[in-house]
Structures are given as structure tokens and as C-alpha cells.
Nucleic acid binder design. Structure first.
Length: 489
RNA sequence: GUCCCCAUGGUCUAGUGGUUAGGACACCACUCUUUCAAGGUGGUAGCACGGGUUCAACUCCCGUUGGGGACGCCA
């Protein structure tokens, strides 16, 4: 049975790179009807925290990557590692190292100054008995693996990858605080947890060589390895905080749908073949195969993610979308009072111009409250282009006609407005734009008549009055000020 | 500096010796339209370079160049 794992370290948020690795492991496991294990690699006690464990768990759940086993915590497995380290010590395959960080740092600096490659100099391998006894009394010791063989393994993606023993240093397997290091805990756990395929980022290739040596030392059969290419920033360097958001939960909070996020990540390095782009989770599981994973690092293109998110939003039913939208609007004014049916109608109008859930309020707050601000400059541009005018008497005329309307559905309102325009022998646009501006404070948005139907007759009239009394004077002042400014030059 | 990985438009990719090198994002234009989106139509743009192998190379091999990664008692 296929068994894979995701082994994040709770020293930070779940990185999108780790998220994609988790996704590929998950897809591979589900495709092969195997098991997906979650293991928390918290051997760095200082930097690990429970909060980060929660964040990781939440991130994986948000993406829909449910694990079959775990989470296992390496911090709870100290004894297991210690026993295994003892075996290697007794077999003479590892040796104690008493060097301090500072001492090593000093020696390393000197080597690097000479432009030579640094590797642990084996100082503690050649200690005299006397030195050993003294250090044993005075210092904490780490355990180093004595590298005597070259390492080689078959990567399912890259083929055979070799590394000469001269290029591998005697690496630490147990730290001076008694905790196993990553390379050691990882090997012990992957073996003990019967992991069949280790699928991880290619930044681990050099670790894999060390780990191969450990498998051999224990006489264990190593699992299969797949080293995935990295996710890159726009400059083609490994994606990191300085590029953009790298935390999965940040994408959730910015209004991405998990389905879109997962779909996008899946395609970053894997292709189902052909021209397929929008693929459901189930299809991904069905189609996933390691043979179709690429070897090239992929740039994380936020634009494409946003497009894809828009596609998913459009494909989501209004009712479902309402549920997804709730976290983004429940703290906004009057959204509760207006009720779900009202919000649903707004969703109907806004849905196709949304590519992030978080844009809902930004685009449609005026459905709930008076416009927070009026884009006077934007509107002024229309005026200059001759596409709109501010004429109080026209707005007055519109209000008067609205008051007489029995019905206020979009068709009736449209008929009414067009009729006024015709009577005045002007283009409807000259009325439509000012009304849109008066009602929403914006120059862009959904069809005017549809949004008026939702706002309702009373609210429309109320806003038109408010506009005439409060905004037009402001508008005049601002325009005049601009004129004066222009004249003074 | 040492070792390792990689190479199809700006980006994600399809392609596994014979294709007018296909799709998507982005960009541009046109269209629809009361605006913005969405939609529709069209367009710009690519096999890094040099050697082989072969009747034939984007495709296979070698090298160069370019990019990336690893060199922690971090994971």
C-alpha cells in the first residue's frame, strides 16, 4: 500500500510551497488508494509553537487536504530517536562531537575566506582519549554521522542522482540538547511509519543523500523519492515573503476560494495533459500522476490565480456564494438587517465582476449604506468627455417621475428614464450617468436599472435628494477650485 | 567557491523524431453596452546557443550559456 506524508515544521505559517507539496502527496495517495500521513516536524523546540500547529492544521483543512493518520509530533518521539542513535553509536557509525557553534563558525569563516568549500573538519573524530574525557566532563555533545560512502538514489522525476562522499560532510544526527536533527528524525520516522514515497521540494536533494546514508547504516530499504521543482517568484528565485503572500491562510483571507487555490496550485508543476485548466478536486485525484509532473520551477502568477478565482466565483451558485461571503461581510453595517434574500439579489448583480470575495463590499457597499464617498474626479472626466452633465433640474425631473411610479422594477424604471431623455431630446446616457453617480458615488458598476430595482424606489429618491442638497454644492466647489487652479498657472 | 537540479512566447503549460509548434493567463484591438466587468472575435509574442546522431530534430546525446537550489547542533 502506498503511504505518503506531509511533514511541515511549525515554525511559521503554511507556505504555499509546502501547500503544493501537501497537495501532490494527497493527490498521489488518493489516486493510488493509499494513505496520507501528517507529521509535525517540531524538533526545533525553540522555534516551534502550538499556534503554528493550529495554523498548519487549519490551512490543510481549508484546502480540503484531510489526512488519514496523525498528526504525529516528532517532539514526542525523542526516545525512539535516542534508541536508534544508540544503535549507530554502538556500531561505530557515528561519533560524539564537542565543538561549539562558535568554534565551528570561526573555522568555517577561515576556510571560506580562502574561497574553499567548507565541510566539518572532523576535529572530534580524532580526539585523544584525554581530550575526550575532558570534553565529556565539560561540554554537551552532539552526534555526528561518519560519512564514508558516496550516496546515490533513483529519483522518480530526475532519474539517478549521485553525490560523492567528499561532498557530504559528517552531519549531526543528534543535537547537543539531545534532540534528533531533521535528517535523522525524518529517516527514522519515514521508515517506522512505512512511508513508501517521499515527495518533497527539490531543495531537499542534498538532504536526501545524507538520509540515504542513514538508511544504509540501519540496513533499511529507502522509500522512493520525488523531488518537486520549487515555486518561484517573478524574479525566478524561490518564492518568499519578499515576493508576495506566502501563507496559505492569507490567500483565504484575501478572498480566494479554496477550490480555485487548489486548482491553481495543482497546475503549478503538474498538467493533466491536453488543454484542461479548470479541474475539480475529484478529477485531479483521478488524473494525477507523477509522470506528468514537470521538472521546471514554476513562477507563481497571481494574475492567473485571480482569473481562476473569478471563474470559480462565477461557477458558484448565488446561495453557496452567500455562505462563502459571510466572513467578509458579517462585520459590515446593516448586512444582517437587510436579510439574506436582499444580499442574494446583490450577489446576482456583482458576481460576474468579482474575482476576490473581499471585493464584494468594496464594489457594493452602497447597496447597504449611503455611498461612503463620491468619486467626483472620476465623474468630472465623464463630464469633460461630454458623456454626462450635472443639471439639477434633470435630476429633479427624474425624482418627480419616480415618485409617480407604481412599480419600480428595472424595466419600468428604464422605460421611465428613457422617456424623460426623449422628452428632453437628449441621449439617455446624459441622465443615466449622473443618476448612477448620485446613487452609488461611483462611475462604474452593474446595470443602473437593475441596481435601482434592488435599492428600491424610496431609497433611490432619498439618495437623489441627498445628492442634490449635499453633493452637488460640493461638486461645484471642487470643480471651481480646479478651474481656479488651472487659471492661476 | 564546491556540489546538485533545470531550460517551449512575459507567465503556466501541451508536445515524446516528420505539427502551419496547440491551449490558458497577461497584454493589445475590435465587438456588445448607460459605465465597469463578463462574453464574443481577432492579434502581438516561443522551442537559449553550438556541436553531434539521423533521410529528418523542439523532441535523443555532448558541450556552452543562462537561471535556480543546497552547502546550519533550521526544517
Amino acid at each position: 500500500m502506498i503511504r505518503v506524508r506531509i511533514a511541515p515544521s511549525p515554525t511559521g505559517f503554511l507556505h504555499v510551497g509546502t501547500a503544493r507539496t501537501a497537495l501532490y502527496n494527497f493527490l498521489f495517495a488518493r489516486n493510488k488508494k493509499g494513505k496520507f500521513v501528517l507529521r509535525i516536524e517540531d524538533t526545533d523546540i525553540e522555534r516551534s509553537s502550538d499556534e503554528m500547529v493550529d495554523v498548519i492544521v487549519e490551512s490543510l483543512k481549508w484546502m480540503g487536504l484531510y489526512w488519514d493518520e496523525g498528526p504525529y509530533f516528532q517532539s514526542e518521539r525523542r526516545e525512539i530517536y535516542r534508541e536508534h542513535a544508540d544503535k549507530l553509536l554502538q556500531a561505530g557509525l557515528v561519533y560524539p562531537c564537542y565543538c561549539t557553534k562558535e568554534e565551528i563558525e570561526e573555522r568555517r569563516r577561515r576556510v571560506i575566506e580562502k574561497k574553499r568549500a567548507w565541510k566539518y573538519d572532523r576535529r572530534c573524530l580524532f580526539l585523544t582519549q584525554k581530550e575526550k574525557e575532558q570534553f565529556e566532563r565539560e561540554r554537551a555533545k552532539a552526534l555526528r554521522f561518519k560519512v564514508e560512502k558516496s550516496s546515490s538514489f533513483e529519483d522518480l522525476l530526475h532519474g539517478r542522482i549521485e553525490r560523492s562522499k567528499e561532498d557530504i560532510e559528517d552531519f549531526v544526527i543528534v543535537k547537543s540538547d539531545g534532540m534528533a536533527t531533521y535528517n535523522f528524525a525524518c529517516v527514522a520516522d519515514d521508515h517506522l511509519m512505512k512511508i513508501t514515497h517521499v515527495i518533497r521540494g527539490e531543495d531537499h536533494i542534498s538532504n536526501t543523500h545524507k538520509q540515504i546514508l542513514l538508511y544504509e547504516a540501519f540496513g533499511w530499504t529507502p522509500p522512493e523519492f520525488v523531488h518537486l521543482p520549487l515555486i518561484l517568484g517573478p524574479d525566478r528565485a524561490k518564492l518568499s515573503k519578499r515576493h508576495s503572500a506566502v501563507s496559505v491562510l492569507e490567500y483565504r483571507d484575501r478572498g480566494f476560494l479554496p477550490e480555485a487555490f487548489v486548482n491553481f496550485l495543482a497546475l503549478l508543476g503538474w498538467s493533466p495533459g491536453g488543454d484542461r485548466e479548470i479541474i475539480s478536486f475529484d478529477e485531479m485525484i483521478e488524473l494525477f500522476s507523477l509522470e506528468r509532473v514537470g521538472k521546471r520551477g514554476a513562477v507563481f502568477d497571481i494574475k492567473k490565480l485571480e482569473w481562476m478565482n473569478g471563474e470559480y466565483i462565477k461557477a458558484t451558485s448565488d446561495r453557496e456564494l452567500l455562505q462563502r461571503l459571510l466572513p467578509f461581510i458579517e462585520n459590515k453595517p446593516v448586512t444582517k438587517e437587510k436579510g439574506q434574500e436582499y444580499i442574494l439579489r446583490v450577489i446576482g448583480l456583482l458576481k460576474e465582476r468579482l474575482f476576490l470575495l473581499s471585493q464584494f463590499w468594496e464594489l457594493g457597499s452602497y447597496f447597504f449604506i449611503l455611498p461612503e464617498q463620491y468619486d467626483i474626479d472620476g465623474f468630472a472626466k465623464y463630464v469633460r468627455k461630454g458623456k454626462a452633465e450635472i443639471k439639477e433640474e434633470r435630476i429633479g425631473e427624474v425624482m418627480k417621475s419616480f415618485k409617480n411610479l407604481k412599480k419600480f422594477d428595472s424595466e419600468t424604471v428604464e422605460g421611465c428614464v428613457r422617456n424623460i431623455a426623449e422628452c428632453m431630446s437628449i441621449k439617455p446616457a446624459l441622465i443615466i450617468h449622473p443618476i448612477r453617480f448620485a446613487l452609488t458615488g461611483k462611475t462604474v458598476g452593474p446595470g443602473l436599472f437593475e441596481l435601482m430595482e434592488i435599492l428600491g424606489k424610496d431609497e433611490c429618491i432619498r439618495r437623489l435628494e441627498y445628492f442634490v442638497e449635499n453633493i452637488i454644492p460640493q461638486y461645484r466647489t471642487q470643480i471651481n477650485a480646479n478651474m481656479l487652479k488651472l487659471l492661476s498657472y
